[in-house]
Amino acid sequence: MPSIKPSELTAEQRSLDAHVRQLMAGLPAPFTSTDPDGALIGPFPVMLRFPGLARPLLEWFTAGTGASVLPARVREVAILTTGSRYAAAYELYSHSRVALDVGLPEDIIEGLVAGQRPAGMTAEETVAHDVAARLHSGAPLPGALYRAVVRAFGDSGTAELVFLVAQYAAISAILNAYDVPLPPDGD
């Protein structure tokens, strides 16, 4: 689905475009989110074409990131684990860069992108990976894993992690449904 030039956006799309750009401005790492014309890329051309569906999804994302109790590295482990399960290229591209920026080592990022459980993660990162991987297996969390995640992050952090995995599963589905390509600097 091609991007929409800013000059061609409807009023409703312009409002959503501005909201997305504000969200993107708060991310910790640079990755390409616009094309040479300044139009949003990634999942955003799809969202701009369906603003009534996209706005609630973006509000859900905003609600989950405002008062995060999860460390940034833990969040990125869960996001990359989710992206790898879906083979969502743009998600893996963008969040690999975010993960690197928040201090996740390259070898761990590469392992997560490859769908592995890399050695060298902290105990909290390992729990986040295991929760995300298990949720994508289509089965409930085993009692021992549930207790481990609650010990690591408390009830609020556990809920945040579960919702984060669900959010990025939704974004991955959108990216895959429309076969969103990588930008030229994607690897």
Score class of each variant (00 low, 15 high):
Met1Trp: 05
Pro2Tyr: 06
Pro2Val: 12
Ser3Gln: 04
Ile4Thr: 08
Pro6Lys: 13
Ser7Cys: 11
Leu9Pro: 06
Arg14Pro: 08
Arg14Leu: 15
Ser15Asn: 07
Ser15Trp: 09
Gln22Ile: 13
Gly26Leu: 15
Leu27Ala: 13
Phe31Lys: 07
Thr32Asn: 13
Ser33Met: 13
Asp37Ala: 15
Asp37Gly: 14
Ala39Asp: 03
Leu40Asn: 11
Ile41Val: 14
Gly42Thr: 08
Pro45Lys: 11
Arg49Gln: 13
Leu57Pro: 01
Phe61Pro: 01
Thr62Ile: 02
Thr65Gln: 09
Ser68Leu: 10
Val69Trp: 03
Val69Thr: 04
Pro71Thr: 03
Ala72Trp: 04
Arg73Lys: 08
Arg73Ser: 07
Glu76Asn: 09
Val77Gly: 12
Ile79Cys: 02
Leu80Ile: 06
Thr81Ala: 15
Thr81Trp: 00
Gly83Leu: 07
Ala87Leu: 12
Ala87Glu: 07
Ala87Gly: 11
Ala89Thr: 03
Tyr90Glu: 09
Glu91Tyr: 01
Glu91Asn: 07
Arg97Asn: 10
Ala99Leu: 08
Asp101Phe: 09
Val102Asn: 04
Val102Arg: 05
Glu106Pro: 11
Ile109Glu: 03
Ile109Trp: 03
Leu112Asn: 01
Val113Gly: 05
Ala114Lys: 04
Gln116Lys: 03
Gln116Pro: 00
Gly120Lys: 00
Thr126Asn: 01
Arg134Glu: 02
His136Lys: 10
Pro140Leu: 14
Pro142Leu: 06
Gly143Cys: 02
Gly143Trp: 08
Ala144Tyr: 09
Ala144Lys: 10
Leu145Tyr: 06
Tyr146Thr: 07
Arg147Tyr: 06
Val150Glu: 12
Val150Gln: 08
Val150Arg: 13
Val150Tyr: 10
Arg151Ser: 14
Glu160Thr: 00
Val162Cys: 15
Val162Arg: 06
Phe163Met: 15
Leu164Asn: 00
Val165Ile: 14
Val165Trp: 00
Val165Asn: 06
Ala166Leu: 14
Tyr168Val: 04
Tyr168Lys: 10
Ala170His: 00
Ala173Lys: 02
Ala173Asn: 05
Tyr178Gln: 05
Pro183Phe: 15
